[in-house]
Design a protein around this nucleic acid. Structure first.
Lengths: 336, 336
DNA sequence: ATTACTACCGGAAACGTTCCCGAAAATGGT
DNA sequence: ACCATTTTCGGGAACGTTTCCGGTAGTAAT
């Protein structure tokens, strides 16, 4: 019932509390034998140091907060898993909050986290324009923050990004090389710089191959958005040869309406996605998609954050750009 | 930089520490005026009680832990969102951990949470057999726990369940009524009672309609499992008229290999899923599936837990069974 | 034998709260 | 004016650690 404390262990062994403490944090002078003895008895008694008391004395919460726009799609959960992997190993706890795509709840989430004295924050924004003032204050007050993927450039923090330009370029080039030269881009939400970068890559590939740049259609990032964009495409009766979507949900939504209307993929229209969701390989046809290193994103964001936390004071924000990969599958290979 | 503490506030006002404490937890005797004075000055100084110290003295953390098998599929994230909705409103924090489908990490997760003095736990198990002894101890030590979906019957706690029997029955009956009388059930992992209940429902529907009971195939719950089961079905060259899968991932995996092999859905083989993932309505053909009230599950689990935490001592475990719904879509309607 | 280390270890303060206990002040009844 | 009661407050222990400071042995050198 009651937790066994360090005192119980000390009493049982007839040593002092400080000695037991030393046994657990081996930076202090303690004889090897007594240390081993203490450790084994402690284990037998089921003792482990109370994290809360440790936090109090160490004057650190050993908790970091993560806030993401949503986590019903697999992208963010995967980076969370990556982050937890390194953070938990270092003795940190992870508080996860999701903003429901609303910057107001994002603001509230961050405030809750700060009130709870997190040592640092890992954030992906819901909006690049709304909370910047708030974040500036936070940064000025020395709160370590790392942003990832959905970031705002002006903020002076570490960031981990994906090379959206490059991989958008490659994905587009892949379509062109396959012979699909009329490509429409479902670009997602216009306000993100990530969106802009992907558009740049999209255009660059066209220029390189001297193909006329295809249409760019904005909307959200959901299945439904993909469906409605595809429908509007069908309605005006001039289908492109291929669709390059800014994420897999858009792509899958589009595929769904194409197929419902009797179109064959990729014969009638090819499709390429982005961000490689879990199911890209398990739908029909399998979906070509840009794979982001989700796990890596979480890990490097965490490492960056820990670095900043440890080196408080002398620290320069870094931006790390991670690499990806294009998984070519059935939805985009030209069959003659 | 430095946190202002309760002492700073006390010194500034010339009152004692305990008085300031009283001002913040208004259950003790304090004059209204002094309380107001303290509160306003404290606010001006930017003071708020240190949650860590509070946890240490109160031996309560106002934190509840959630541990789920995974959260890359949308099911668990959705119940997490439901749970957070009620918990955060009541001033609780939520610590989320995922067990990666391994009972060892589940055990570690729970231990971490317990070490951190969570006030209660909401758990969905990775295995119904492995950690029961551990959970029994935990329950005996008075830790409030609510299990959901993947539970073990013997444990004396509150549970929130889905009526797997009933909805498996309805889903199967739906197929039979549509004229699909040879139905194979992809049952998922054999060890869960949820699996057993669904099988019972599956059989009961057959009996009611006097149809010979179809085959039951066990395996995991992933896309890959669905694919491999479908392949083994194809290999032996005697296809059932329909497949009823224990979750949508299985169903989608199966649909994928059926379609890859030129089979039409539902003409050649119908498919019904379970647990209604986000994308059931957005793939081709759209997937008939049993919808679970994910949000509700999270909410009721939280309410049950809070009830237990508040009424510590006099408390009887409850089991709440929630209702669902069958979303009939293209993958299972008979076309002649 | 005295000195000078070194290697270990214990005592106790500190972290920031809560809350019990008792004391002082205010109130009320006579 | 006095006692009894209530209201309001301060002192200080407790929560479970870490870590500084000092002290005791033991060893080696003089």
């Amino acid at each position: 019932m009651k937790h066994t404390t360090i005192k119980d262990v000390a009493r049982k062994l007839g040593v002092s509390v400080s000695t037991v403490s030393r046994a657990f944090n081996d930076k202090y002078d303690i004889k090897k034998e007594t240390k081993d003895r203490i450790l084994s008895v402690a284990k037998k008694m089921g003792y482990s140091p109370n994290p809360i008391a440790q936090k109090l004395t160490r004057q650190r919460s050993y908790t970091i907060g993560m806030v993401v726009p949503e986590f019903v799609n697999s992208f963010f959960p995967e980076v969370i898993i990556g982050a937890q992997a390194v953070l938990l190993k270092k003795g940190y706890q992870v508080l996860i909050m999701q903003s429901d795509l609303s910057w107001e709840t994002e603001r509230k989430n961050v405030k809750t986290l700060v009130d709870n004295k997190v040592d640092g924050l890992i954030i992906s924004l819901t909006s690049e324009t709304e909370n910047t003032g708030y974040y500036e204050e936070l940064i000025a007050s020395n709160m370590p923050i790392v942003f990832f993927n959905r970031v705002v450039d002006q903020l002076e923090t570490s960031k981990v990004l994906f090379d959206d330009f490059k991989w958008s370029f490659f994905a587009t080039e892949h379509l062109i090389v396959q012979g699909f030269t009329e490509i429409t881009h479902f670009a997602g939400n216009e306000s993100f710089s990530l969106t802009k970068n992907r558009i740049q890559g999209f255009k660059a590939a066209h220029r390189k191959h001297q193909v006329q740049i295809g249409e760019i259609m904005y909307k959200g990032f959901t299945f439904e958005d993909g469906e409605s964009l595809a429908e509007s495409l069908l309605k005006r009766d001039e289908l492109p040869q291929a669709v390059f979507a800014a994420n897999d949900a858009l792509a899958i939504g589009a595929m769904h309406v194409f197929k419902k209307n009797g179109l064959r993929i990729p014969e009638d229209v090819a499709v390429v996605g982005f961000s490689e969701s879990r199911l890209a390989a398990h739908i029909s046809p399998t979906l070509t998609s840009v794979q982001q290193p989700t796990h890596d994103i979480g890990e490097t964001a965490s490492n960056l954050l820990l670095e900043q936390i440890e080196n408080k004071g002398l620290f320069v924000p870094q931006t790390i750009v991670l690499n990806g990969r294009l998984n070519v599958r059935e939805s985009s290979v030209f069959l003659r």
